[in-house]
Amino acid sequence: METRKKILTSFLLLAVLSVSAQPIVENRKGNLRTQGNLAGGYLFSQKAAGAYLTGDFDLFLDEQVSFTGSGWYGFKVSDNATGLIRNHSIFSGFNYHPVKKGRWDPFIGLSPGLGIAELKYADSEGISQSTIGLAPLISGEIGCNYYVGSVFNLFVKARGVTGQARGDAPTPTRLDEIKITAGLGWNLRLWK
């Protein structure tokens, strides 16, 4: 049993050391960091959790600046007869990466977007109507990448969103939310 523990510990240590020994992206300029993932969110006005299929990219224009874009496909928010049913969005902007080199890559950015919300409401006849509301969104994000090697990275990021959608509904629906995602991303060199 003791021997097995030692072997397991040795393998674990070897795995950690080998990860650290892998070469990482030396020059970020020209590098595309991308990922596709499941993500969660919390809608403040609805007091409800959101679930998303999301994809995003960071295209490094220089060592400290990336052009970023992301898309969020929202799964059903709630089973309520009225209110916000689905909440999709796209964002685009720039991220600033204060640490130029190394495995750790914290970042912060401003990336406004457009929300596409599916809303249901009851009119005077009590019938639930469905409508699509488009909404300009104010948004920023903060996060950190960890470059495991030249191909993979681990990341965690949080995005704050504010805005309102209405469509044909009698009252607007707030889309204030924090979205969080984490996982494994890819690095792709596009130019040197």
């Binding site: 902007g93 720039f94 990336s111 406004p112 977007g113 457009l114 300009p136 969104l137 104010i138």
Partner: peptide, 23 residues
């Protein structure tokens, strides 16, 4: 090139806040 977020503090004398996005 840039992206912008906009808050409209009031519109035509009405104390209503608007939110905007653009580039």
């Amino acid at each position: 090139l840039g992206m912008r977020s906009t808050v409209s503090a009031f519109s035509h004398g009405e104390k209503n806040v608007g939110y905007g996005a653009g580039g």
